[in-house]
């Protein structure tokens, strides 16, 4: 059976740590998928991960096809050290080929190597696509509840 472009992109992509030279592509991919350019946010995220975190990306055909970002946080909200996923994105034309799963697995492996046995994330309740993705990776509701209030 002929493999689709997205399957080829997913299986052939090389997953590696992001370099500063990748930032422009990461920023552009994020802007394409979210509709909002956040260059300063991603530059700061890269600096932060370079010091103490994981910023992994998938590259194929000379293009960034997706990326995932996370870090280990300890004793936040009283929780023992735990891996946190801040962001995961896959180029729209490459989605549903398993690349997000490969990125997630790579980040989990990095977390395991860092000595933690749990991974956690937070997402918008109405973002069904990303919610379904994390569920498909085996994530279930954890012991925390997110609350907020307006500062009027």
């Amino acid at each position: 059976m002929a493999r689709t472009a997205r399957q080829r992109g997913a299986t052939q992509a090389r997953i590696r740590p992001a370099a500063s030279s990748d930032l422009a592509e990461v920023i552009a991919l994020d802007a394409e998928t979210t509709g909002l350019a956040k260059p300063e946010y991603w530059r700061e995220m890269f600096r932060r991960c370079a010091a103490d975190g994981f910023f992994l990306l998938a590259e194929a055909d000379g293009l960034v096809q997706g990326f995932i970002v996370g870090e280990v946080r300890a004793w936040e909200f009283g929780s023992p050290p735990c891996g946190w996923v801040f962001a995961v994105q896959v180029r729209p034309g490459t989605r549903l080929g398993g690349l997000g799963s490969r990125l997630f697995a790579a980040l989990c492996e990095a977390f395991r190597a860092a000595g933690v046995d749990r991974v956690r994330t937070m997402l918008a309740r109405d973002d069904t696509v990303i919610h379904a993705f994390f569920r498909s990776q085996g994530m279930v509701a954890g012991p925390f509840i997110q609350l907020e209030t307006r500062l009027d």
Binding site: H131, A132, R135, S136, V140
Partner: peptide
């Protein structure tokens, strides 16, 4: 209700069957 609906919308049958296999 919003939380319940978001949870039900996020779990495909395939994901549910994987969850059943893992028995969390």
């Amino acid at each position: 209700d919003d939380q319940t609906a978001a949870t039900l919308r996020s779990i495909s049958l395939a994901t549910m069957l994987k969850l059943v296999g893992r028995k969390p």
